[in-house]
Design a protein around this nucleic acid. Structure first.
Lengths: 343, 343
DNA sequence: GTCGATGACTGAACCGGTTCAGTCTCATGT
DNA sequence: ACATGAGACTGAACCGGTTCAGTCATCGAC
């Protein structure tokens, strides 16, 4: 109280315990080199003093970790705020990391290049121990860029094109087939997919599966059009599709936000959902349950997804060899926005 | 290439330039103590070597900063994913910080106590230089807790109850009055506010302003009921209100998510919006524009809000005296969800 | 009774920066 | 011609941990 409060250091503990700095370090880290009695005395003094390790000092020591991992989010700014996917992912990653005392750095970027620049800076300045790469693209430059950076990474997506980085992926193709069969069984013959940007790997995978399933089901029309995940673009695209001479009777969206926008546009154009148009969303957030009619959706546990990828990255940081993993299939949750075509 | 790649240090630069470590430090930081010629030579070598300062080392030096600030999010987990507010706020804070090379740490917490525990840990381990405190509560324990922590903070909310911390606040009362006058002018006499949790300061401020404005406008009924910001709770509350013998003819929600849920419940109960029920949302995200009818909302520039609070915290970290600030008023954006009561 | 092993602990180096107290050089003023 | 001072630069301490090479005492084995 006499002077300005200063964070206690291991030197303070050493003095109070009458031992050396090194002994304190051994005691606090549970390593051999001190007797059990001394260890307990030191721990008790540390706790009395309210000591906590200085993260910068730990990180600076040879072989030290900074105790943080990073995530860069790079999607159209206007969709970022709303898209539930990211916050859920972050929340999953975060809860997993909190358990082991690792922090999460978040950064938004405009494009892949500035995203890579962020990784470079993080590596050069030793800001994080590793990163999670999201939204894998076709010919994605990021895995290669990570190759020359001393920064461990785990990819969300794949398993192709990850450049040897461990990845966590989902078999979207199976879910796409399920959706097509479901809609075909309801009598739909003209289905259009309003997909995300063409250069995302999972977009391409879903598109391929969609075409194949549609052919097998003998649909009259099965196209994929691309939008940017934003509500605005999703709405615009829907408007164009519904204005066709022979409009589709079912629309499958690549995220919930665009599906919501599509629902709004249908209502605005006097197209009844589901009697004249069925709508399916990908990724099931509360949004889908809140609107009327409620949205049929493919539901994944995004939070669990985040936890898992955090675990994988933790494994990599601990020096383990981490294998690629597949998450459980998304489940189709039929709701009010899909139904048989009525005359 | 011969050996393992090692991050270049100022010592490497010093050797290459034939000067001492100290000289390199002066040169790199633009401080006096080296000649202009030497400075340029050092800078060029540094750039050739691809040098970047080690953040842990900088942080460890006396008076050093860790170059990161933290934000803890503490809201019901189920609303977190969707609520656009936070991601927009984060995005604003982030863009501002990126410009000055500061990173953002994000953490989710279950309650105020674990939130305070996070601040304590961050301070003790020197993880961040400062924090932004969101969602100020009545009798909030956080400002006081920060008082004994060597961790600068700026509060979003107030200006009362911030315990002397600088804050950024909005005059919500004026917006509430505007909404009440607007609805009264449309002929509404029974208005209910579906507010956020009672213990948030801005909730209380809005409630007080609401009661006063309602009295002045001579409304028949003006109540405030509380929900937890989640869509589920918003929907449940709406269902209860609309089932009343004399249901309200206008509902004012404290966030967009609950307004969306309310809209869904009205549709489900066969209550037409806006001819039988008007709905107003607080905080205008793309959601409000995407649903049909589109939601009348109070629009604030949340991203700018985030930028501003980041600037204030930066000021505090630079040792400036930072004064409380008020952000521009929210603007009422009338849309399809409000209108005159029809017979 | 000596040898060697084991365990407890110390002292110092190290990580990569920042900063302070000096030293040395050279131009300037008188 | 000589004190003065400014500018350029060096060497070392320091931040707060981790870790390694020793030192010393104790104990058991032969």
């Amino acid at each position: 109280m006499g002077s300005v409060m200063r964070r206690p250091t291991i030197m303070d503990i050493a003095r109070a315990a009458g031992v050396s700095k090194g002994a304190v370090s051994y005691a606090l880290n549970g390593r051999p080199g001190v007797s059990e009695a001394t260890r307990e005395r030191i721990l008790s003094i540390a706790s009395d003093l309210g000591w906590a390790p200085s993260n910068p000092a730990r990180a600076l020591a040879p072989g030290g970790r900074v105790g943080a991992i990073g995530m860069v989010v790079d999607r159209p700014a206007r969709s970022l705020g709303i898209e539930p996917f990211f916050m859920q992912l972050v929340s999953g990653v975060e809860t997993e990391l909190a358990a082991v005392g690792i922090d999460l750095m978040l950064q938004v970027a405009d494009n892949v290049d500035s995203e890579i620049a962020v990784y470079r800076r993080w590596a050069a300045e030793r800001r994080v121990d590793g990163v999670v790469i999201v939204d894998l693209r076709v010919e994605d430059p990021r895995p290669e860029a990570m190759g020359v950076l001393p920064l461990p990474a785990v990819v969300l997506g794949g398993p192709e094109g990850t450049g040897g980085l461990p990845c966590l992926y989902t078999d979207d193709a199976a879910s796409v087939r399920e959706v097509v069969h479901y809609l075909a069984a309801l009598g739909h013959r003209r289905i259009v997919r309003v997909a995300g940007p063409e250069d995302f790997v999972h977009t391409r995978d879903r598109s391929a599966a969609f075409q194949q399933a549609a052919r097998r089901a003998g649909l009259d029309e099965a196209r994929t059009v691309h939008a940017d995940y934003s509500g605005e673009d999703g709405g615009r695209t829907t408007r164009r599709l519904l204005a066709d001479a022979e409009p589709p009777t079912a629309l499958v969206y690549d995220n919930d936000l665009m599906a919501l926008a599509g629902l709004g546009v249908a209502s605005e154009m006097g197209v009844d959902v589901p009697s004249q148009l069925s709508i399916v969303a990908w990724d099931d957030s509360a949004l889908c349950r809140l609107v009327r009619p409620s949205l049929t959706a493919i539901s994944r546990d995004v939070v669990a997804h985040g936890r898992r990828v955090a675990q994988m990255l933790n494994g990599v940081l601990s020096g383990e060899r981490v294998a690629n993993e597949e998450t459980p299939l998304g489940e189709l949750r039929p709701r009010g926005s899909t139904g048989p075509l009525l005359p």
